[in-house]
């Protein structure tokens, strides 16, 4: 026993080193961002408190740009309101109103406004921390957008803060389609430029031209359909591939994120239940009879 003890003491530096390296490697290779404990992420109380107090100062820095953006957006929305009002008038006049189908009453998507308290763009896996958490109705797997387009998806939720997987993170693939056509592909970040991403898995017969807008497909319950994501800049396809790979300029400026909105889909549970039900059915009955 004494010898064992002496051995441990003699080689303690290697033991300590090995244990710490093993712990680090375990953290490093666990991979899945959804399975991390919230205290080991920037949404934990320690980090989020520090980020929140720093954000009280830094949130003023980009106000000029944000203001400009908001003005532009406001103008666009106003013109939309005007045109919608006109349409409503026309429809009322035509007496269509009585025959319109009534909706179920619950608006499908709700938006929760949150503020970005920490953000990175220069790492291979980028995350964003926001100042709203489960107390404000935020859950994992909710979508996050800002005034220009898609930002990311919530992964870990603390009481008053949450961590978002940024679009600039290879853990996040977004189903998108080209606005003019119905063809859809999968958007994934290119790894080094915070303004660019790739749209992959787009069928070879798709018709497009540079400058076309890319919007969310709405095939998942996370984002509503038709949210702007980016603009096609050029074709980066390898000649031998069966799918297009397009270079996309992202509409969201990740370097100056300020206010964002978390999208809550009120029908998400229903949709999920249906999809799970389908999966269970096919497991029970793989050949469908």
């Amino acid at each position: 026993m004494n010898e064992l003890f002496a051995f441990i003491v003699r080689h303690s530096k290697w033991l300590v080193f090995t244990v710490l390296v093993c712990v680090s490697c375990m953290l490093l290779f666990r991979g899945d961002p959804y399975r991390q404990h919230v205290y080991l992420t920037s949404a934990g109380r320690l980090a989020s408190t520090a980020y929140k107090s720093a954000n009280k100062v830094t949130s003023y820095f980009d106000l000029l740009e944000i203001n400009d953006d908001l003005n532009r957006r406001n103008a666009a929305l106003e013109s939309e309101i005007v045109s919608l009002n006109e349409r409503i008038e026309i429809m009322t006049e035509q007496g269509y109103r009585d025959t319109l189908v009534a909706d179920s009453g619950v608006p499908p998507f709700e938006f929760i406004v949150a503020h970005v308290i920490s953000n990175s763009v220069a790492r291979p896996y980028n995350y964003i921390t926001i100042n709203k958490g489960s107390a404000d109705g935020i859950r994992p797997e909710l979508g996050v957008v800002d005034r220009n387009g898609v930002v990311g998806i919530v992964s870990n939720v603390g009481a008053h803060s949450a961590r978002v997987i940024s679009l600039l993170n290879p853990h996040f693939r977004l189903s998108c389609r080209i606005k003019r056509s119905e063809y859809f592909g999968s958007l994934v970040w290119n790894g080094d430029n915070p303004y660019e991403a790739y749209l992959e898995e787009l069928p070879r017969h798709t018709v497009f031209k540079p400058g076309d807008t890319i919007v969310t497909s709405g095939y998942s319950a996370v984002f509503p359909a038709g949210l702007p994501v980016g603009v096609i800049t050029d074709d980066d396809t390898d000649r031998n591939q069966n799918f297009f790979k397009l270079r996309i300029r992202l509409l969201t400026d990740f370097t100056t994120l300020g206010n964002v909105q978390v999208v809550r889909n009120n029908n998400a549970d229903e949709l999920k239940a249906i999809e799970e039900g389908e999966e269970n059915d096919s497991k029970k009955n793989p050949f469908g009879n």
Partner: peptide, 22 residues
Amino acid sequence: FLAGFLLDIFCDTPGVNSLCCT
């Protein structure tokens, strides 16, 4: 290790800085 581990929590880079710092 502690320095790297704390920074990892702040930066959402689990294990990267811990390993390098150790």
